[in-house]
């Protein structure tokens, strides 16, 4: 039996969340010893791993820039991340998401400090249940901070969707496939900067504004959580 998607008579979603409620979020930093920085972020059943390598001199020297570091992002879904096996070759969607994740992070990293180098960010989706790009951006930002790369601010991301005419926060896979619209947003609240704004579907101007404020409010909480996770990695460990 398929789960009933929409808002029930109590005003709750198919998984019991209120429209403005996120899935349970968990974050961890320093999960990979070999990477310069790494992080794991879970939005409900969505599980994303981000690893940062560099800044380093690339093997292909032609690609460097004399005045700043280049940010390379690879968003990839593991073949086992979906219910049906996903072809591991990069799809058109993955290439596009790699680009939008890069653009969502580029504005906050101070790349001018490391000219002639590249910073590699690998975003690996281990389990996909909707909102993978948002979880990916959140994880990548955390991994960059863990790597010690100078950043003007941390970036958080979440998607707002529309189901049965109601705006809902942090859509999962079930809601995404049945919903009327999906609007991923990434922002750096400390800078008051929106670094990603996409919309798939149709929303009125009023809905866009309302959805955006829902997303920004949630991003503030996500960034506060990122900071608390980074802070905890330096907390006093009693012997």
């Amino acid at each position: 039996m398929k789960a009933k998607v929409g808002i029930d008579e109590r005003g709750l979603r198919h998984d019991g969340r209120r429209p403005d409620e996120m899935r349970p979020v968990s974050m961890r930093v320093g999960v990979l010893a070999n990477a310069s920085g790494s992080a794991m972020v879970e939005f409900g059943k969505t599980k994303v791993l981000a690893a940062v390598y560099g800044p380093r001199e690339p093997t292909q020297r032609f690609m460097v820039l004399p005045e700043k570091a280049i940010l390379r992002v690879r968003y990839h879904m593991a073949p086992f991340s979906t219910a049906e096996r996903k072809n591991p070759a990069p799809s058109r969607r993955e290439v596009e998401l790699s680009k939008v994740i890069r653009e969502a992070l580029e504005d906050v990293i101070i790349t001018s400090e490391y000219p002639r180098t590249v910073i590699d960010v690998f975003v690996e989706v281990l389990q996909a249940d909707g909102g993978t790009r948002a979880a990916g951006i959140t994880a990548a930002s955390l991994a960059l901070a863990d790597a010690g790369l100078p950043m003007k601010a941390l970036v958080g991301s979440v998607a707002v969707g529309k189901i049965s005419g109601t705006l809902v926060l942090d859509v999962d896979e079930t809601e995404d496939s049945a919903g009327e619209a999906d609007m991923p947003v990434a922002a750096a609240p400390d800078l008051g900067l929106i670094t990603l704004f996409q919309l798939n579907g149709v929303l009125t101007e009023e809905e866009v504004n309302r959805g955006l404020s829902m997303a920004l409010k949630a991003i503030e909480q996500l960034v506060a959580m990122q900071k608390s996770v980074l802070r905890q990695s330096y907390e006093v460990v009693e012997e």
């Binding site: 101070i110 400090e113 010690g148 790369l149 100078p150 003007k152 941390l154 750096a188 400390d190 900071k227």
Partner: peptide, 28 residues
Amino acid sequence: LPGDRLDSRVEAERPFVTEVGQEKVATV
């Protein structure tokens, strides 16, 4: 943490701090 505002009297070297508008902001 990155993005936190610092007191303008706090001494710090680049790139550990940057200026955003008139404010001193930590980057790492």
